[in-house]
Design a protein around this nucleic acid. Sequence first.
DNA 1: AGTGAGCGC
Length: 259
Amino acid sequence: MMQQPPPAANGSAAAGSGDQQAYHHHQQSWMMQQGQPPAGWNPQSAPSLGQHQQYGGGSQTPGSGDEIRSLWIGDLQPWMDETYLINSFSITGEVQQAKVIRNKQSGFSEGYGFIEFVSHAAAERILQTYNGTPMPNSEQTFKLNWAGERRQSEGPEHTVFVGDLAPDVTDYMLTETFKAVYTSVKGAKVVIDRTTGRSKGYGFVRFGDESEQIRAMTEMNGQYCSSRPMRTGPAANKKPLTMQQPGMCFVNFVSDTRV
DNA sequence: AGTGAGCGC
């Protein structure tokens, strides 16, 4: 059944063990090029049907086996496979295996996956260190979270839609642009086309404070982020907080003033 | 161009 994993996979772990806090160099890579597959990427051999590759060994099961050692990772581009994920964290020497979830029919990546580390502590360290930092060979940043959880539910949030974004605007830039003005900003997300890896030119900013959200919709309209003025407006809420009666259409709280 | 979306395909 389970044979020894390829030596190469474990080799990196061995090499990286020891004291390695040199995780990454966190730079603002706003100026990076649009995400492109690395040179080695071969589109012809893209989806390998039926092959679920897992790298690294699960041989060493340290200490308490019930603790969560896996992280969920999202915003993956089609060319980001298990090897890419392993390599992304191999410097830590703490990654054990990675799995990209693929569509069974097409074999294409679903855009997310799971990475297992040697321990809960290791996984937590990686989560803290890497989340939100630039991914190798990509303009995107790591989107990590604990496996087994649903999306982070940080309570009720108030969201503003932001359009007309310049192509280089990242989550970080958008977040900071609003944070500079509004203290309750929880984060921002620029919508990325998963197939191209490029920004769709719009995104969302989440506020903890509703009054700030309301203000931001008008105050930030026309303000610059990167090279272009933004356009702000109410965000259509696709995840209703409560069940609503079917067929019953609730009031529009905000008049649609976007043009 | 224009209202994301992500837990084991």
